[in-house]
Design a protein around this nucleic acid. Sequence first.
DNA 1: TTTTTTTGATAGTAATACTATTATTTTTGT
DNA 2: ACAAAAATAATAGTATTACTATCAAAAAAA
Lengths: 236, 236
Amino acid sequence: MIVILLFLYVKLVYMQQSVFQIQVQETLYIKDPTTSKVGKLILEQGLLLLEDIGLEEFTFKKLANKIASTESTIYRYFENKHQFLAYLFNFYWAWMDVNIAFAVTNIESSHEKLRRIIRVLTQKVNNDMRTPYIDEEVLQEVIAIESSKTYLSKKVDQENNAGYFVQYKKLVDRIANIILEINPSYSYPNALVSTILESSFHQRYFGMHLPRLTNEMHIQERLEDFLIDICLKTLK
Amino acid sequence: MIVILLFLYVKLVYMQQSVFQIQVQETLYIKDPTTSKVGKLILEQGLLLLEDIGLEEFTFKKLANKIASTESTIYRYFENKHQFLAYLFNFYWAWMDVNIAFAVTNIESSHEKLRRIIRVLTQKVNNDMRTPYIDEEVLQEVIAIESSKTYLSKKVDQENNAGYFVQYKKLVDRIANIILEINPSYSYPNALVSTILESSFHQRYFGMHLPRLTNEMHIQERLEDFLIDICLKTLK
DNA sequence: TTTTTTTGATAGTAATACTATTATTTTTGT
DNA sequence: ACAAAAATAATAGTATTACTATCAAAAAAA
């Protein structure tokens, strides 16, 4: 408990509005977009544009038009669209980390913790009012589709050094520790966790677009059951 | 047995050189690249270029330079680089399908079949001399990194209709049937298979680039053990 | 209210993702 | 071996992308 609270204290910053706010690293932007109106507009409308047309078609020019601004302004916040995506990616996982931390607070059983974590991972999220410029439901959609593209690139090592994946790695570690509580002799805790996380995104996507690759995984309860079943049986 | 041989007969085309050759669908090219010298050069050098610089940096112009030809020539074979990738993607899975078919031939036990399949999936492949213009080892590397990009796009449904994913879907079905032999009441055979397939790529990649997300999965035996363990325990 | 910072407007460049045209080379059918 | 057909190379051109640079205007901070 104390460990978790300390953890939260370190990773969250207390703001004027007397709510917690999720922070991402300085390597993920040139100028912090949360500190200005245009910055927040970039986040808000950029996310919606990404949802709309996907990463490949997404350009700063189109976003600039959408927010009635200019390319040069957006380039003052983000180096390029990949950094923008990495920003959202880290925001998402930092936020999920908090959700998961709350979901397992006061739970004794490690099995139950894992079940709750998987529920949080497979559930459709609720919009978080503390960040009005980020629609978390849309964010989840976008990250599910685009996140693998952040690391499946020739620039992985460089981007990894720049901290593009810290939040994700932290979360994997945290869940892996719970895996080890359940079965301390299991050899592949991190691998199991990252497999589950990736699968939660891709299976849902397959359910919607490539149904032959899956078994109705667009239905949340099925996806949840599928993943919990794999985890608990694997750890027995 | 007979079913498998018939299957092979249908999906493979007997060629002059008295060897089997893997064929991909007509929707995956404008002009069949295997029917000409430049076509084969495009495949061969295109694959190497992809390995070298990745899909994002890959352009037909660069490939044209590499093979001392022109953009317009390449465009006569493939609509764009995504179709080119889809061609390789289907070639890969068609070829793995054959490898897997041979690996399980004459094997009685379904458990053993599954073990052998996972071995084939996680092993570094050997170059297949029947297709001198495709270096299968490089192909595996490239597909591992780029394949998700074929389906994680706004054009999935359209590309799915065009048959961009048939080979992959076929293979998933085939392995899913073996899963059902092991446990006929398991509810998520296809999902388990596609999870394993994706994981076999990504875990190895994590092992090499993002080690904190996995547990030394760049070592083939570990990856194999990890995946077999998950499958067999899940199906118990 | 001056200074500093941020934004908008405009311009420009090299590269990408193509399409089109025509001359030349290669393949093929007889 | 030769004409006809097909394929390729060379060249040009367009709209868009992915930036960078400059400078004036607007907004925020001192």
